[in-house]
Each structure stands twice: as C-alpha cells, then as structure tokens.
C-alpha cells in the first residue's frame, strides 16, 4: 500500500487550509442551494475526503477507487435525474438563504459553545471535525428540504462519515464496499423519486390566470368552438371564474398550431398570433 494518485490529491487537502476549503464548500451547498452547485460541491467534497483518508491512513487503493466510483456514480444518478426533471428540483423550497445562513450560524455557534469534544478513534481532530461538519450539513439539508433531489444530496453528505469510518476503523471487513453499494442505492432511490415527482411548474403554467374582477356570467372557455384556444390577457369582459372553482385549463396545451393560425380563423386586431402561455409551456 504505497503512494497512489489519490494520496497525492489527498495531500493537497490534508492540511488546515484544505480542510477549511472543504468545509466552506460544504457550507456553500446549504447557502446557495441551487441543485447543480450543491451536487457538484457534494461530489467534490466526497472525493476529497476519500483522498485525504487515502493519504493519511494509507488505505488500500482499491477501497479508495471504490469510494470514488460510488461517489461519482451517485452524483451522476442524481444529476441525470435533476437534468431530466428540472422542475422537480426547483419546487418545494422550504427556506430562503437568510434562514439557511442563520441555521448554519446556529450550528457553528452551538458547536463552539457546547464543545462536546467528540473525537473519533484513529482519526486526527481535523479529520474528525471535517467528517462531523459534513454529516451536520447533510442533516441540515435533509431537514430544510422536502425534495428528493436535495434530500439525496444531503444523504450523500451524511454517508461521508460512514464511508470514512468503514474504511479506516474496520479495514479488511468489506464494510467499505457495502457502504459504497448502499450509497449508490440511496442515490438511485432518490433519483427515482425525483423522476416520479409530478411536474408541478409545468402544470401551473398551463393554468389560466384568474381575472381580477369576477362577474357571475358563464365561462366562455367552456362554450368555445373546437380548435379555438382560450388566451390569457385576451379574455372577454364576460369571462370569469367563480371562487373555489377549478381553474381553466387548455384542452391541448402542447399543440403547436394556435387557434388564431388555423385555417379560416382570423387573428383579432392587437392579438398575438401565438399565446405567451404556449411559448412557455
């Protein structure tokens, strides 16, 4: 078990500034929250932690390769899910940046004041602090989010202590490999849940905005001719919606030929040939 490329990378981070950099990167996940940044930062942190362990504890390179592979595969799975279902990634934001900043500051302050003196056997204090910080940030992300994508990112960070402990404290037990499998399966489950989410944003874009004034007259959308499409902003004076009624929806929102361009239909003066809602849908 000699020097490996992982150890070389690990040596770059296995010092005060390196650990501070990784801690700041993890904190930035909580602060920025954007899923692309969060996922990239989480994967980079996991890879850096594996490399630090390889450098300081002379781990079997196969174990480090397994950890790198698991982290990358988990990141790719979540990234693909976020890419193919970006609306799911942007829904259900349970907090703003100020709340997240306060939460982070509270955790740091509480840790500083209480100082529980946690130390993991065989780990240096710097490593211990980094591992605990990763776990706490992961827990904070999971606590502040109800989306599968962000929960998946939080769980990735929470598995980091498990990965480190399995590789260093129980070498030769095969636990590191089992933890890597668990990490991939966790990411796969969260990715599945991301893709299984309904497209809430897309659905809401198809919904007509309610007019500001309501008058008790029949809905024109219900009496429109086949092929005609109701258009936002062009409602007739009599067009309305009752309180508590189901909002109006376009019959076929993905059809590319707007009603006004259909044969025999003349666009009204001052009306766009294609409705804005059609462009954004």
């Amino acid at each position: 078990m000699g020097f490996s490329p992982f150890s070389a990378i690990g040596l770059l981070f296995a010092n005060g500034p390196g650990i501070l950099l990784l801690s700041a990167l993890t904190a930035s996940i909580v602060l920025f929250w954007h899923w692309r940044w969060a996922l990239s930062a989480a994967v980079i942190t996991l890879l850096a932690l594996s490399s630090i362990l390889a450098a300081l504890h002379t781990l079997n390179p196969l174990v480090t390769v397994g950890q790198w592979l698991a982290s990358v595969v988990a990141g790719v799975l979540l990234g693909l899910a976020g890419y193919f279902h970006p609306t799911a990634a942007n829904t259900h934001t349970n907090s703003n940046w100020l709340l997240r900043l306060i939460a982070l500051a509270f955790i740091m302050g509480a840790w500083w004041v209480i100082d529980p003196g946690v130390s993991l056997p065989l780990f240096t204090q710097g490593e211990t602090d980094l591992i605990l910080w990763l776990g706490l940030c992961g827990l904070l992300i999971v606590s502040l989010s109800s989306t599968p994508l962000h929960t998946g990112i939080g769980l990735l960070l929470m598995v980091a202590p498990l990965q480190a402990i399995a590789a260093v404290l129980l070498p030769g037990s095969g636990m590191a490999i089992i933890v890597s499998i668990a990490q991939i399966l966790l990411a796969l489950s969260c990715a599945y849940l991301v893709l299984a989410q309904p497209s809430l944003v897309r659905e809401s874009r198809r919904t007509l905005p309610l007019p500001s004034e309501t008058t008790p007259t029949p809905l024109t959308a219900q009496t429109s001719q086949p092929g005609q499409t109701a258009q936002p902003g062009t409602s007739q004076p009599g067009q309305t919606s009752q309180p508590g009624q189901t909002p109006l929806r376009f019959p076929k929102p993905r059809q590319q030929q707007p009603a006004s361009l259909a044969t025999g239909v003349t666009p009204k003066p001052g009306q766009e040939p294609q409705a804005p809602v059609e462009k954004s849908a």
Binding site: P121, L122, P161, L162, I165, A166, L170
Partner: peptide, 10 residues
C-alpha cells in the same frame, strides 16, 4: 450506521 461501526471498532 456510523454509531454501530464505531461501536464495532470499540
């Protein structure tokens, strides 16, 4: 799980 693994080391 981490608690069990550290407990296992002890």
């Amino acid at each position: 799980a981490p608690l069990f693994l550290i407990g296992g080391w002890w």
